[in-house]
Nucleic acid binder design. Structure first.
Lengths: 217, 217
DNA sequence: CATGTTTCGTCACCCGGTGTCAAATTAAAT
DNA sequence: ATTTAATTTGACACCGGGTGACGAAACATG
């Protein structure tokens, strides 16, 4: 069970989670997710189908790399945030930082997200993975509003935030020129301010900021 | 293919979509969704497994009754709305009306939503069904903002609206005393006004309206 | 009765996923 | 060096959801 904790004894692993994930991702992108069977992946990696399903709980989960660890970082960041700062500011900056991978792994991230947003099975499965994300946000909002996480307000705000992030992801996947971080920043500012004000000002606001090199650190 | 278009000739159906949906729902609630196999449902209805999958494209879809027709009504309502009225007002009222089923079918709706929000497979599948819902909202918002439906703003607003509705549903499922329509009304007012203002007024706003008999017509 | 039309059931099949168990491979203890 | 414990692996059987194909059943019409 320990990923790489000090190896005590026993037969060593012939492959790693990362290796499986990488090879599988390549196959999925090339030949399509549904067209690629688990046996194909197993053959490509050089292990049995059974071993594959010991590394990942399902075929869908192979596409999601190490998502849980990222989530822990997000939770920690939200917990350590300055309590005097506005809630939605903290949330926005945390979400942006949460998605600030390096330039190097960006193409891989795009591959993953392209699959997740386009393949129906993965699109559906994403709801389960994002539920954890949502719970982290709800927990933070609940603490700020002195409510319980199950209450309506934290749940609504967290779910709306999730929708905002997902929609932004979808746009980023389609448009290669879009800066993900800047787009997230803009979307969450919109969410904080309310969509009604947006509708009133019929002319669209400063949208120039969503493209280009602004990293929104 | 025609659900009940004038029957010309041929062998008559031994069952209907509604009958299958009702019987299956009862079984799912009683014995659990995953514990109930398609063969069980087929036996209970009195047809073969193959026939079941001709009525519904998948086991998951059985739980969703006629959702598409409701969606058409929502689209029509949004299309016919007064263009001079505020966008988020129209949206809020349409969503509330969309969920205004009669008192009679309310327990059945609760059963469906309880399954959808608690069973992981259905929770995941809901993303696919709600994607259509989301597209309808995005189409409306895009028209109002003179943008294309694929653009970032309509997508973000529609997804945030979806999250808002879903979270409210979840709360309603858990709390039997909650008035679904009033809760939706309140949540969408929050979404329109922005969550930031909410956080600033540390004291919670008039929450008394979310319980009781207000039907928000 | 003959014909076309529509629905139904059966069968075979694929794939994702689980449980089981023995074999393989290593470190550590004797 | 041999045994022992620990760990991973692969093979196998199995289940359930879902699809394709095909013939049979049940109707309306002529």
């Amino acid at each position: 069970m320990p990923v790489d904790a000090q190896r005590r004894s026993g037969r060593p692993r012939t492959s790693s989670r990362e290796e499986v994930s990488e090879i599988a991702l390549r196959l999925f992108v090339r030949r399509g997710f549904e067209q690629t069977t688990l046996q194909d992946v197993a053959d490509a990696v050089g292990v049995s189908k059974r071993t594959l399903l010991r590394y990942f709980p399902s075929k869908n989960d192979i596409v999601w790399g190490a998502f849980d660890e990222q989530l822990q970082a997000l939770r920690a960041r939200l917990a350590d945030a300055d309590p005097t700062r506005p809630m939605m500011d903290v949330l926005r900056e945390a979400v942006v930082a949460f998605n600030d991978y390096g330039e190097a792994v960006l193409p891989e991230l795009r591959d993953r997200m392209t699959l997740i947003t386009s393949v129906p099975a993965l699109q559906a499965h994403s709801m389960l993975r994002y539920a954890d994300w949502c719970a982290v946000i709800a927990e933070f909002v609940a603490r700020r509003l002195s409510l319980e996480p199950d209450h309506q307000f934290p749940q609504v705000i967290a779910s709306a935030a999730l929708g905002t992030a997902m929609a932004t992801y979808r746009c980023w996947v389609v448009d290669p020129d879009l800066d993900l971080l800047a787009a997230l920043d803009e979307a969450f500012r919109l969410l904080a301010a309310g969509f009604d004000a947006q509708a009133l000002g019929a002319g669209r606001p400063a949208h120039a900021g969503s493209r280009g090199a602004s990293r929104a650190r």
